[in-house]
Write a protein that binds this DNA or RNA. Structure first.
Lengths: 348, 348
DNA sequence: TTGTACGCGTTATCAC
DNA sequence: GTGATAACGCGTACAA
């Protein structure tokens, strides 16, 4: 193992002062030709890496890293993010990182805009957000760029050309995974893609999953299967059960359901109540889904892992601020397949 | 966000010197009653956390963290550990951690002992090892304790009462997962547990998986299924295919195979060549397995994630040495279910 | 029993 | 242009 060289070592080897070495390293100019040569010669011979600890020691500044995402009382999908935040606080608070949590109403673009603007007004050092609303997110993105606030998104892409760093999954691929799972659980029949309670803003989100699912079966080109899609929204005059029941009456040959949202339990509930023999694959380890997974009324869940997304996003920002680490443009997380036997370890 | 208090802050608030505060904090004694009271009063009011950066700055020492595991040319299962090592080096070298890689012959207890002893002789600060040989591991463990070298194990437990820190998976549970998967892929028939090319030393390792698998079906108590177990070892007079072929001739009702090692591809190869309709579930993302996964001759793989195991193990040791973080006694990693659609993201 | 002074590696400022 | 020096927060040796 080689020695750890310091600026002092270099200055002694080159026969100049620490200050000169510093000026060479940081290209601040004001260095004579001869001194520059001497220092560069040494730098070529040894491998110098600045000590990040000493660097950040001088920074007694506390960096404010903020995370903005929907409130959990509307959708427990987001709850695991709290664990990620707590973990980050424990690990990085000592390094001078303060994590702030901001939430918005997942059904209201206005709420998103308000919260984001309020957040920007406090001039944080960096923002990680889960932007459900594409249009509004563009406005926020622009504002952050103007104010030179570092911004990353997780769960939702807002930038096709990835100007904004993104942490999440390949949604198209999750659709393919669901398809493969239903393919292995069944041998034939009608497969139903169900979008539940999703607003327009999430259209692209859901659409990608649907496309992935269809793509798998198009590729397979198996005449034993047929695919169709429905949207369900809880309205005043009809509930989930009634809607599904009437749909199944006119489509009796359904053998599998792919639910594109965390409300997979809705389909599972219907399956239980109607005592139908259908296979169900859906998304996310929310409590109600896990209950059905345990009982066998959901076969597989795909874990979008919001905790890991949030954690990775916060971590990237923190390490960038502290140690000037580059933030990857795109971080695609693994897509976990969950059944009744392996969900436990994914919960924490 | 609250201010970050330093020892200097406390000393000024309490009207004593930094040295006194330090003595109180570290309970070194030699502090008068009155000074003790004053300092403690301040400490109660504010929340003081020492700055780990400043603490480790003084340590210009390079910590040697060593990892000992089998050579990959014998079993590509271990190859991903190299990625973990590289990543750790990139992240922690700057903090004064040097990672050293030591390998042993996975078939030779003597080789393990030799390598481990040679390693201990160099007096490293910490060792992370994958100990395939239980008896020999006990000797090494004892020697490390004597020499006060911190030791953790990954992949293999060597300590029922967890005196040694362990990073890995719940192997019993992986067996249950395999069972659940085969259960969902089939409806009835004989299920075959296959141990391939495993020596005695790994008996407990394989046994746990087998027990988990059986436990699942005992719990389910479904008369449509029956379970049996075989051991295959490549010998001079017979090859895998012949052995399996003759076994299947006398047991024609087999619908699923559970291979307890990374040599799952052996079963898949047989399935392909004999054109049998059997479902196969096995372990690990080694190249040959992935080929069969893509072609459909393996249905699911369980990822033991050696990379994550090694990474987590090294990380625990590094952060313990640098920041005096406590090492968890047992870290049970998630058990990933892999099919042809989601293996890619798990590879890197 | 207490306070002071120094060193760790980097950076920034200030005389020369 | 250059080199000396202070500062960051902590630990500690040593002087008072």
């Amino acid at each position: 193992m080689m020695k750890k060289y310091t600026i002092k070592d270099i200055s002694e080897l080159a026969g100049v002062s620490k200050g000169t070495v510093d000026r060479v390293l940081h290209k601040r100019g004001k260095v004579s030709e001869s001194a520059l040569k001497k220092v560069n010669k040494i730098l070529e011979e040894i491998e110098y890496k600045p000590n990040p600890i000493a660097k950040s020691l001088k920074n007694n500044k506390i960096y404010r890293v903020c995370i903005l995402f929907p409130r959990s009382n509307q959708d427990s999908f987001w709850t695991p993010c709290l664990t990620a935040i707590k973990e980050m606080e424990n690990n990085y608070q000592a390094f001078g990182i303060s994590i702030e949590q901001h939430r918005y109403d997942s059904k209201s673009p206005t709420s998103f805009l308000e919260q984001a603007n309020a957040l920007i007004a406090t001039k944080p050092d960096a923002i990680l957000m889960a932007p459900l609303f594409y249009q509004e997110a563009q406005i926020i993105k622009k504002r952050c760029f103007e104010q030179e606030i570092i911004i990353s998104t997780f769960n939702n892409v807002i930038d096709k050309n990835s100007l904004t760093n993104y942490i999440g999954q390949d949604l198209f691929q999750t659709g393919r995974i669901a398809a493969k799972l239903l393919d292995s659980l069944t041998t034939s029949g009608d497969l139903l893609i169900v979008h539940i309670d999703e607003q327009v803003q999430n259209a692209t989100h859901m659409q990608e999953k649907e496309n992935g699912f269809k793509h798998y079966f198009e590729e397979k080109n198996d005449p034993a299967y047929s695919i169709s899609t429905i949207n369900i929204n809880k309205t005043l005059d009809t509930n989930y059960f009634e809607f599904l029941d009437s749909y199944f009456k006119s489509n009796p040959n359904i053998t599998g359901i792919f639910v594109t949202t965390s409300k997979t339990y809705v389909a599972a509930q219907f399956k239980t109540e109607s005592r139908k023999d259908i296979k169900i694959v859906g998304y996310d380890l929310v409590e109600k889904n896990i209950e059905h997974l345990k009982k066998g009324s959901i076969d597989f869940l795909i874990n979008q892992n919001p905790k890991k997304q949030a954690f990775q996003g916060l971590r990237n920002l923190a390490e960038h601020l502290l140690f000037a680490k580059e933030i990857p443009k795109e971080t695609l997380l693994p897509i976990d397949i969950i059944n009744s036997e392996n969900y436990r370890e994914y919960l924490e």
